[in-house]
């Protein structure tokens, strides 16, 4: 994470001095974007840089579902399964994705290309059902559209 410190330093200028722990969430997120997950050495680096306890970082990492300690597939395919999406056939979509990728939700394909997850409401219920790949929302999905989408992910 050391190479990210100049970026963190820039953020710091706008943060209230003396309340450095409000940088924990942004820093952890940036580290994960950079490496794909958060490694032990990143935690060491953050403890030193922000002056917060190792316990605090570990607690944060285990509490939030989006943070991870291990790498996942190149494409993280996340399908919403909350109320509005389920009412517009999300369950069929999840079954289709699982069959097509040959993995159950929570698993990664053997070639490391895809990780399939089910997620809760994504704040996009008006364009349900919704599939998010890495950071990008794909709205008004259908089985046919999912097939086209997967084709494009190499």
């Amino acid at each position: 994470m050391k190479h990210l410190i100049p970026e963190f330093e820039k953020w710091k200028r706008r943060f209230p001095a003396g309340y450095e722990s409000s940088l924990v969430m942004p820093c952890v997120r940036r580290i994960q974007e950079d490496r794909g997950y958060v490694a032990d050495s990143d935690i060491d680096g953050l403890v030193e840089y922000l002056g917060v306890s190792r316990m605090q970082i570990e607690e944060v990492l285990s509490f939030y579902t989006q943070f991870r300690r291990k790498p996942i597939g190149r494409w993280h395919v996340q399908c919403c399964r909350n109320v509005s999406c389920s009412m517009l056939s999300a369950e069929k979509l999840i079954d289709h994705l699982a069959k097509k990728l040959g993995v159950a939700p929570g698993q990664t394909t053997a070639d490391g290309r895809f990780t399939l997850s089910t997620v809760e409401c994504l704040g996009s219920c008006g364009t349900a059902p919704v599939v998010v790949v890495n950071d990008t929302y794909h709205e008004n999905m259908s089985v046919a559209k999912v097939d086209v989408l997967l084709e494009g992910l190499k």
């Binding site: 924990v24 969430m25 942004p26 997120r29 917060v52 509490f63 939030y64 579902t65 989006q66």
Partner: peptide, 24 residues
């Protein structure tokens, strides 16, 4: 501050705990 997937962080005091860099 960007959250990281937790519904209770929408609750005002959970939100503040998260801004403080803690569990929400």
């Amino acid at each position: 501050i960007r959250g990281a997937g937790s519904y209770v962080c929408g609750e005002a005091s959970g939100l503040l705990a998260s801004v403080e860099g803690k569990r929400g």
